[in-house]
């Protein structure tokens, strides 16, 4: 069963040593990502799409309904060879994708919940496999907030083995959560 360890990283935590700036990532590190999905209704998810493009990943905007994307792209992809996808969407959209992924024995291997707080800040709850946890936390510390989650997913999408580790921190960027619902950044892989 999953081993969920909980700890809190304060928003003022020092940037960890050995961070991976995305410019230094080789394409090999994220070469297995077959697609990046983002919900174009929200600013942070649109930013995720932009970041994904900088990684050279095939990006797919969605607007609530993923029927067409699933039937035309994801299902053929998973039916053919399987493949890792990443995204930033609403939780209900991730639930839908997670259930569809089960049909192909794919699963959510890492995710970051972005939960708006009443003071305008956003709580970021990170759930990753332990072999990628260090790198993921470092990236989030480097980039902070939504952008950090985007880089983390894209940089560590290959890691899926090991126990699940959970971390939470609050990011005090008051601007980025304005009007956005709870969102989630995620990786689905075999």
């Amino acid at each position: 069963m999953m081993n969920r360890r909980h700890f809190v990283v304060g928003s003022s935590a020092a940037v960890a040593a050995g961070v991976f700036a995305h410019q230094t990532l080789s394409t090999q590190q994220h070469g297995t990502i077959q697609a990046a999905l983002f919900d174009r209704r929200f600013a942070p998810t649109r930013e995720f799409g932009r970041v994904a493009q900088t990684y050279g990943v095939d990006t797919h905007p969605i607007e609530g309904d993923i029927t067409t994307l699933w039937t035309k792209h994801l299902r053929p992809l998973w039916s053919r060879d399987g493949g890792t996808i990443v995204g930033m969407t609403t939780p209900s959209m991730l639930l839908c994708l997670e259930e569809l992924a089960r049909d192909h024995w794919h699963r959510v291997v890492a995710w970051v919940d972005h939960v708006p707080a009443s003071d305008g800040s956003v709580e970021h709850h990170v759930h990753v496999r332990d072999e990628s946890a260090y790198r993921t936390r470092s990236l989030i510390d480097t980039y902070r907030g939504f952008s950090g989650a985007a880089h983390a997913m894209l940089a560590s999408a290959q890691a899926r083995r090991g126990a699940l580790e959970t971390a939470s921190y609050r990011h005090q960027d008051l601007g980025e959560s304005s009007g956005t619902p709870t969102l989630v950044t995620w990786t689905i892989a075999a």
């Binding site: 609530g64 309904d65 029927t67 939780p91 209900s92 959209m93 639930l95 619902p181 709870t182």
Partner: peptide, 12 residues
């Protein structure tokens, strides 16, 4: 058939 039902579950 549709998956559109999942557009209603978002917190808003």
């Amino acid at each position: 058939p549709s998956l559109r039902a999942f557009s209603i579950g978002a917190r808003s």
